[in-house]
């Protein structure tokens, strides 16, 4: 196992949506939610770093996102990643999972060949769990999804536990291989202070003034940014235009704090409660 690449995404902290993060019109105010490292991507990175400890593999991290996603790339460096890249272009905005997986797979092709490709199981904003398998298909890779435990690494094989919903499967997979990792897999490490010292100055290549370029390069503080032009990919396959799915309409199902309805303690009241229970989960209201 020599080279590992991890795909990570910056997401709004949707687990902490409160009344304040809702707009007047009932939609989610993304700006009011902190942007965080997608939780299961931390598990994917942790797995990569554990394998690095075992085999000395080099760990590369990429994210497709706006410039502020540099935060999770720096966090990756602090945790122990060796190389990080931001894949960023205005034309990526509005990408669905097909367009996202197209960009990610092209970026990976551009960067080279890896033995192991890791993604989180699912991002907590789009919530689709589709990007990992789609990248695998585009790169014609072997795949194991929902990996909840790394058991051992043997030459060209990696043995893991897969959480398939009715049973747990112990699978020996042959590399090169893409795996999606669940939150049960491990406890992601905290940033390491030596790595923080080494990388706290690191910045996006596009944010470094020319006069500082050589000093930043010498110290390894440059975080490369790759655009559509750098990758030489088809802009029509990126962003909204490259996305067959469109978000037609959004409805919030979060209740604002403080709303309280007391039902009568009779059959009618219980029926009211039951309606509340059933309603959100059918999507039919």
């Amino acid at each position: 196992m020599k080279k590992i690449i991890v795909m990570v995404k910056q997401v709004p902290d949707t687990a902490n949506v409160t009344g304040e993060s809702m707009k007047e019109d009932g939609t989610v105010n993304r700006a009011a939610l902190p942007a965080i490292f997608n939780p299961e991507d931390l598990n994917a990175l942790e797995m990569a770093l554990e394998i690095k400890n075992l085999t000395g593999a080099e760990v590369t991290v990429i994210t497709m996102g706006p410039p502020k996603a540099v935060d999770i790339l720096k966090h990756s460096l602090y945790m122990g990643a060796d190389k990080v890249y931001l894949i960023s272009d205005r034309k990526f905005a509005g990408s669905d999972t097909l367009a996202t997986s197209y960009v990610l797979s092209e970026a990976i092709k551009f960067l080279g060949k890896y033995d192991l490709y890791l993604a989180g199981r699912q991002a907590i904003d789009g919530d689709t769990a589709q990007v990992g398998p789609q990248v695998a298909e585009k790169l014609d890779l072997n795949i194991i999804s929902y990996v909840q435990n790394l058991i051992e690494i043997r030459d060209e094989r990696i043995v893991v536990e897969k959480d398939s919903d009715v049973q747990t499967e112990v699978i020996s997979g042959r590399i090169p291989l893409l795996m999606t990792v669940t939150s049960d897999a491990n406890d992601p490490r905290y940033p390491n202070s030596l790595n923080m010292l080494k990388h706290f100055r690191s910045e996006l290549q596009t944010d470094i003034p020319d006069e500082n370029k050589s000093r930043y390069e010498k110290n390894g503080w440059v975080i490369p940014v790759l655009t559509i032009d750098d990758l030489g990919i088809d802009p029509d396959k990126c962003g909204l235009g490259g996305s067959p799915t469109k978000v037609h309409k959004i409805k919030s199902i979060v209740l604002k704090g403080g709303d309280f309805t007391l039902f009568e303690n009779n059959a009618g009241g219980v029926m009211g409660l039951v309606k509340e229970i059933v309603k959100d989960y059918s999507g039919e209201n």
Binding site: T14, V247, H248, K249, S252, I253
Partner: peptide, 18 residues
């Protein structure tokens, strides 16, 4: 129709050209 955003929204998705 699908829940997204950690279950906080219901999004209606269409794929008209697919």
């Amino acid at each position: 129709v699908r829940p997204a955003f950690g279950g906080n929204i219901l999004a209606t998705i269409i794929s008209p050209d697919s």
